[in-house]
């Protein structure tokens, strides 16, 4: 097996942008898995929280595109409170979503709300979900 020790230009740029936007340092993660063992949504995720960090560390932008896990993060910060390196995965996920979201397209916009629910939804949930998942 060939192991590549040097990042391509675009890979390096992706890693730098994620670090810059999120204010985190993904290189400091040593893949202990504490984050994934505490995340309340792993049962639905295609890749685990520590794997999100790993893919960013390796500059693998294409493999993050279409990942459901990025949209299952509820910013509950359980991972952040348990990470021995203090990494905030919710910040990293938000930065990655920003970089890979199809330009000008909402992941979850007002049109997705079923009409019969419109009356019962709390305002804060609507504001929060649009802040997270739409442009």
């Amino acid at each position: 097996m060939r192991i590549k020790l040097k990042f391509e230009e675009n890979e390096k740029k992706f890693i730098d942008r994620v670090n810059e936007l999120s204010g985190e340092n993904v290189y400091s993660c040593y893949q202990c898995g504490n984050c994934s063992s505490g995340c309340p949504f792993v049962f639905e995720m295609d890749i685990l929280p520590n794997q999100i960090i790993r893919l960013v560390q390796m500059g693998r932008e294409e493999e993050l595109i279409g990942s459901k896990a990025l949209f299952l993060c509820a910013s509950c910060f359980t991972c952040q409170s348990r990470c021995p390196k203090g990494i905030n995965i919710a910040n990293v996920a938000e930065a990655v979503r920003h970089l890979i979201e199809p330009k000008g397209k909402d992941y979850f916009g007002p049109q997705e709300i079923p009409a019969e629910l419109a009356d019962e939804l709390p305002q804060q949930a609507l504001v929060a979900v649009y802040r997270k998942f739409s442009k």
Partner: peptide, 23 residues
């Protein structure tokens, strides 16, 4: 007591949120 209830995912991923709330 410190676990997430599903938060705003009850709008975008209602099934996942129901499971978190159920737990």
């Amino acid at each position: 007591k410190q676990e997430c209830c599903g938060s705003y995912l009850s709008l975008s991923m209602p099934d996942a949120a129901s499971e978190a709330s159920y737990n």
